[in-house]
Computed example of a mutant assay.
Amino acid sequence: MDSDRSERTHTQDTAGQRTDGGRADPATEAFVAHRNLLFTVAYEMLGSAADAEDVLQETWLRWADVDLGTVRDPRAYLVRITTRQTLTRLRTLGRRKESYVGTWLPEPLLTAPDVAEDVELADSVSMAMLMVMETLTPSERAVFVLRDVFAFDYDEIADAVGKSPAAVRQIAHRARSHVAARRPRGAVSATETREALDAFRRAVATGDVQGLLDILAPDAVLLGDGGGVKQAILRPVVGAGKVARLLIGGLSRVTGLSLRTAQVNARPALVIRVDDEIETVMAVRIDDGLITGLYAVRNPEKLSHMQQETTLRR
């Protein structure tokens, strides 16, 4: 982990090189200008901020060797490099997930309020949508993200994923249908999410089982991710009654506990602290006014991006 962090820091330092005139060189300027976009592309496909940062490192190394005189559109070119590196990373991530202890959940991000103002972007980076993305193949993820979230044309996407425009259109149609069948039913505003989460928080904090049952859908599912480092449920818990009893029974025994809301992945989520240290980030999925999914991330390696806001851009 320390070597990875130092490499990422080195990449950021390298990308800050300046010419003798005091300005960054053209390659650096272009990379820095689009860095938040590139991170967002990689993160949406990977569900991992750490892996997205590694992808950006690889993107920079390749971009630094490009003859800029041959580049018509730096944004499209950089996205193409990032997409190819992300597809390679997805294969590695897939192997890691096979040996992962318990359920693998996306890495939560503390996001700035302005991310929620872009409704489409906010929806695409929500934990619920990232879980839907997990059900797509790597190619489907890339095509869906580039087309439906970032509005790249089919020719540009074809260059990025190494397929023909006709094949990309077919993949886009298949991915769109797949996502539509699994995404939350109907748009949910931040206000609705916050109200449901506040009711959930009050019920858990006071041990109000009935209050919790009132906000949970009958078929609510709780998923936990401890990564084999922190204690967490290893299999999904299904059913409002089981979820309510597990949460209230487990949290009632913890001393020094605090439950606060925060903007996580552009949606209100619950941050659970013990003695002021983040122990769990719990995001929710809401359908028809009720909580249908609870995603409890406890793996400490996935909580580092909860210390400061991450900027996401389209």
Score class of each variant (00 low, 15 high):
V71T: 02
R72G: 00
D73E: 14
P74Y: 07
P74W: 05
R75N: 09
Y77M: 08
Y77L: 02
L78N: 07
I81P: 04
I81H: 00
T83P: 05
T86Y: 05
L87T: 07
T88H: 14
T88F: 14
R89C: 10
L90E: 07
L93C: 04
G94S: 15
R96W: 11
S99A: 13
S99P: 04
Y100W: 15
T103C: 05
P106L: 02
P106D: 01
P106W: 05
T111A: 03
D114Q: 15
D118Q: 09
A122L: 00
D123M: 09
V125T: 09
A128N: 07
L130G: 02
L130M: 12
M131K: 14
M131N: 10
V132L: 02
V132A: 02
T135G: 14
P138Y: 07
S139E: 15
E140K: 12
E140P: 10
A142K: 08
A142G: 03
V143L: 04
V143P: 03
L146D: 01
D148T: 06
V149M: 11
A151Y: 12
A151M: 00
A151T: 10
F152C: 05
D153I: 00
Y154T: 00
E156S: 09
E156Q: 08
A160P: 06
S164T: 13
S164Y: 12
P165F: 03
A172W: 08
S177E: 14
S177Y: 15
S177N: 14
H178V: 01
H178R: 15
H178A: 02
V179Y: 04
V179C: 00
R182N: 12
R183H: 06
R185P: 00
G186P: 06
A187F: 09
V188G: 02
A190S: 11
T191F: 07
R194L: 13
E195H: 14
L197D: 04
F200R: 00
F200M: 04
R202Y: 07
T206W: 11
